[in-house]
Structures are given as C-alpha cells and as structure tokens.
C-alpha cells in the first residue's frame, strides 16, 4: 500500500467535468477480475494524470490526462460503467 494512493473521491470534480454527472456513486466493473464497485472506493494515483485502479486486483480501470481544455480518457480496463442521471 502506497501512502500516495488516494481513492476515487479525490477525482470527483474531474470525473464530473468529463461525464457531466456525479461519478463517485457510479458503479464500474473491472475487466480484469470482474469486481464491481463504486468509483468512490477504487484506488487513485495522481501523477501527470489520474490512474484509477481496481481495489480488489489493482488492474488499471481508467486513465485520465487533461491539458487545457482537452481531456484524454482511457477506459480499457472497465467492462461496464453504470451511471445514474
């Protein structure tokens, strides 16, 4: 466990900016292990961008890099994402 690890709550603003709805209660399913969980509880690492990892198997779920008015979102690690409007 790294002290630099945070959780999905810390990305609430960035995620809401991109998806336009509250995202910490959205439920993501990890493509690697199949665990489903709320975005607020997944692990988050912050560097040049944001990396969200599965709290169960540590696989990468989502990567986000923002620069100015553009954002790149890599969703390869997510099987599904269930949003509430």
């Amino acid at each position: 466990m790294s002290e630099l690890m945070l959780d999905g709550n810390a990305a609430a603003g960035v995620l809401q900016e991109i998806f336009t709805v509250e995202m910490t209660t959205a439920v993501g399913t990890c493509d690697s292990c199949g665990t489903a969980g709320e975005v607020g509880e997944v692990h988050l690492y912050r560097g040049a961008g944001l990396v969200l990892r599965c709290a169960h198997c540590d696989a990468t779920l989502m990567k986000i890099v923002t620069s100015g008015t553009r954002s790149w979102v890599d969703l390869r690690g997510l099987r599904t994402l269930q949003l509430h409007s």
């Binding site: 999905g8 709550n9 609430a12 603003g13 509250e22 910490t24 209660t25 709320e38 975005v39 607020g40």
Partner: peptide, 9 residues
C-alpha cells in the same frame, strides 16, 4: 471554486 462534488462519502 466549483462544486459540490462527490456522492459516495
């Protein structure tokens, strides 16, 4: 500032 954000906690 912007928000509020979050709904899980």
């Amino acid at each position: 500032l912007r928000g509020p954000v979050g709904g899980y906690f």
